[in-house]
């Protein structure tokens, strides 16, 4: 178990860890934002004159649901660059 092997193992672990962390962390917000956008589009289709307010609220909602995705992105960066 010499030094280079340990270092290689460490980078391997970091790569897999960051990949899984971001991969799984992206599922939830994606589904949530998909729901938000689809319902907003439904609303816009039903009432086109409300399109502008619906659009801003949709972007607000998407930005807020992205938070957990951003958490996993930060954790992935921590694993990759800081660990």
């Amino acid at each position: 178990m010499d030094a280079t092997f340990a270092a290689a193992l460490a980078t391997l672990g970091k790569a897999i860890g960051a990949g899984i962390c971001m991969g799984i962390g992206a599922i939830g917000p994606a589904i949530g934002e998909g729901n938000a956008v689809s319902h907003a589009l439904e609303g816009m289709a039903r009432q086109p004159e409300m399109a502008s307010t619906l659009r801003t609220n949709m972007i607000m909602g998407c930005a807020i649901t992205e938070t957990t995705g951003i958490y996993s992105l930060l954790i992935a960066f921590l694993i990759l660059f800081v660990l």
């Binding site: 951003i70 958490y71 930060l74």
Partner: peptide
């Protein structure tokens, strides 16, 4: 914490 990390994560993550 969530307000700060959301804003910071988006800006810093985008840069990285």
């Amino acid at each position: 914490v969530s307000m700060a990390f959301r804003h910071f994560g988006n800006v810093a993550g985008g840069g990285v």
